[in-house]
């Protein structure tokens, strides 16, 4: 493998990792705090992409569209939480899996009804298209670099909030022991609603950034959802730090696995990695539950 290929794949891997982190951040906290398995998180990812594509078309302004899409994803998340998921906090995981699976079916078909079955075009503004040379002999798409930068910035911001603010302490406390946090005066349901909305917006952000790279189509969320689940299981449920490290690990491993190994093995690499890590630590790298 040449150095150029090496650098390129590393960039791709980190970019995938950052994207996975955006998907997993909300998921792992929701899981940690409310013990809720939300398979419909992938629907928020898909919604983010569709919203952004459509708002870009309507407003003609890429950045305005992005903001609107984020707000819309957050709103969709709040609606989902408030209308359905809220009833399922105390219920069994079986019920949660079923109800969120039902939600996936509903959201997928509603999306088909609104946007049709063909992938929706999602153009990026000219200043983000094209490539730059990141090193001699390696042109790299500007948009992918932008995705990488935004992802890292958001991850950093999120990390600062969660690690260094009072709200962050409440979130982590809630993720590790919801009842005790409540008994010490933390309004856990409120914190949770905020986390859910923020998680929805982040999933939407991941989706809208992936949109121009992959394709904006129904069902785009589910493969990413499963990768995100792998990330949070490896990182330890409820841990932001674990999610970040695991996301980068999985992103890089997946990218290099596909390049270096025969296809049959390459597509399985991350799952084998997950199995190995869990065989060693059944609760993931940094479980919030001690």
């Amino acid at each position: 493998m040449t150095p150029v290929l090496w650098v390129e794949q590393t960039l791709n891997g980190v970019q995938l990792g950052v994207m996975l982190f955006l998907m997993s951040a909300g998921l792992t906290l929701v899981f940690g705090i409310m013990n809720l398995i939300n398979l419909a998180h992938g629907s928020l990812y898909m919604a983010g992409a569709f919203f952004a594509a459509t708002f870009t078309l309507w407003t003609g302004n890429f950045f305005l569209a992005l903001l609107l899409a984020l707000a819309a994803s957050a709103l969709l998340g709040v609606v989902m939480e408030y209308s359905v998921l809220r009833r399922f906090y105390g219920r069994s995981h079986l019920d949660q899996v079923l109800v969120t699976f039902g939600l996936i079916l509903v959201v997928n078909d509603v999306t088909r009804l609104i946007w049709g079955v063909v992938p929706v075009p999602f153009g990026i503004p000219t200043f983000l298209s094209g490539s730059v040379f990141v090193m001699p002999g390696l042109p790299y798409p500007i948009f992918r670099l932008a995705v990488l930068a935004v992802g890292l910035l958001v991850a950093l911001g999120l990390f600062l909030i969660v690690a260094h603010t009072r709200v962050g302490m409440w979130i982590r406390a809630g993720a590790s022991d919801r009842v005790m946090a409540g008994a010490l005066g933390v309004d856990v349901p409120l914190i949770f609603s905020i986390v859910f909305a923020a998680g929805a917006a982040l999933a939407g952000l991941a989706g809208l950034m992936a949109g121009p790279i992959t394709a904006v189509q129904v069902g785009m969320g589910e493969p990413v959802l499963i990768l995100a689940l792998v990330v949070i299981v490896v990182g330890g449920i409820g841990s932001i730090r674990g999610a970040f490290i695991a996301a980068l690990l999985i992103g890089v491993a997946d990218t290099f696995g596909r390049v270096l190994l025969p296809p049959a093995l390459g597509s399985m690499v991350i799952f084998i990695l997950m199995a190995a890590i869990l065989a060693w630590r059944p609760r993931g790298l940094f479980s919030a539950h001690g």
């Binding site: 005790m180 008994a183 005066g185 919030a288």
Partner: peptide
């Protein structure tokens, strides 16, 4: 809800202590 009760001025030291393992002592 229990957070509202706590805010009325009840401080709980629970059975088993239930320290948050993912927070530092300061936190």
């Amino acid at each position: 809800p229990s957070h509202a009760i706590a805010r009325c001025g009840l401080g709980l030291v629970p059975e088993g202590r239930r320290i948050f393992p993912n927070l530092s002592v300061r936190e």
